[in-house]
Design a protein around this nucleic acid. Structure first.
Length: 271
DNA sequence: ATGGGCACCTGGCTGC
DNA sequence: TGCAGCCAGGTGCCCA
């Protein structure tokens, strides 16, 4: 589900309501997420003040006074802000109950999401430690991408979905960024020219920023913390547009599968 | 080190 | 109406 824009939209929607709040309790209705929610998490977190809500890649980091909750939305997860008295719905697995009476409620039908706890620097957690640079940072650019690609033979689409190369780019935005850069998703990374890496890095930034501005993309499950969908779907050039005319040249959009994931592209605009 | 494939899980849709 | 089969915003892990 959520890629960087949806996670960032979630962060921005929740942060003002939770910053400085004290956690009254953590209610775990279903601990069996991708990894079991640590048994000690509720007792560790309860009573602590929320210092900050950060995002790293597609992870949300709830910084407490002593320790951090690390949350990932997986494919179908979402966080919503609501009064803690609201009756839980199907797949509402965890509540972070605040002293204000509001709670952050984690819903995740497929349970590919996760909620973890650490007392150490969360950026050094095994799951986060070796992640690549943020795509919206200055560090991420064509020169970096060209170096990171380093003559690798993988298809360029799979390269930009690899969290060791760049984080936050998932299946939707990988196809969209390649369209905007005019690059065929099947091309081997080692055959991409330097100027094309420049264009691709730029396209990744542009598409992610535009998607954040639209509140992300909702295909099925995703809603923001207020329960509204994201509106970037209307702005997609290729994703889930098989056989529909390219918005630029009217050529029918093509679909293929790479690494068991759907890819969409325009055979005329992308070389 | 790299690349490919599988696994985890639920639900919605299609076609017989 | 029922059910099998396929597909879905992610990513860790195992194997060659």
């Amino acid at each position: 589900m959520p890629e960087l824009p949806e996670v960032e939209t979630t962060r921005r929607g929740i942060e003002p309501a939770i910053r400085g709040q004290v956690i009254r309790s953590i209610l775990v209705r279903e601990p069996r997420l991708r990894w079991r929610v640590p048994r000690e998490l509720p007792e560790e977190a309860a009573g602590q003040r929320l210092r900050d809500l950060r995002r790293r890649a597609k992870y949300l980091l709830f910084d407490l006074e002593r320790g951090t909750m690390i949350l990932h939305l997986g494919m179908s997860g979402s966080l919503r802000l609501m009064p803690c008295s609201t009756a839980p719905a199907l797949h509402d697995h965890v509540d972070i109950v605040l002293d204000s009476g509001l709670c952050v409620r984690f819903n995740d039908p497929r349970r590919f999401g996760s909620l973890l706890w650490t007392r150490e620097d969360p950026l050094q957690h095994p799951l986060l430690r070796s992640l690549a640079p943020e795509p919206l940072s200055a560090q991420f650019n064509g020169a970096y991408l060209a170096r990171a690609a380093g003559g690798r033979s993988v298809a360029i689409k799979q390269l930009i979905m690899n969290g060791q190369i760049v984080v936050g780019v998932g299946n939707i935005y990988a196809s969209e960024a390649l369209f905007r850069a005019g690059i065929n998703p099947r091309r081997s990374a080692k055959r991409i020219k330097r100027a094309e890496f420049d264009a691709l890095a730029k396209s990744i930034k542009v598409v992610l920023r535009a998607a954040i501005r639209a509140g992300g993309t909702t295909l099925r499950d995703y809603v923001n913390p207020q329960g509204s969908p994201g509106y970037f779907r209307q702005k997609l050039y290729v994703y889930e547009r098989t056989r529909e005319p390219c918005r630029v040249c009217r050529t029918p959009i093509k679909h293929l599968v790479q690494g068991q994931r759907s890819t969409y592209f325009c055979p005329k605009c992308q070389k």
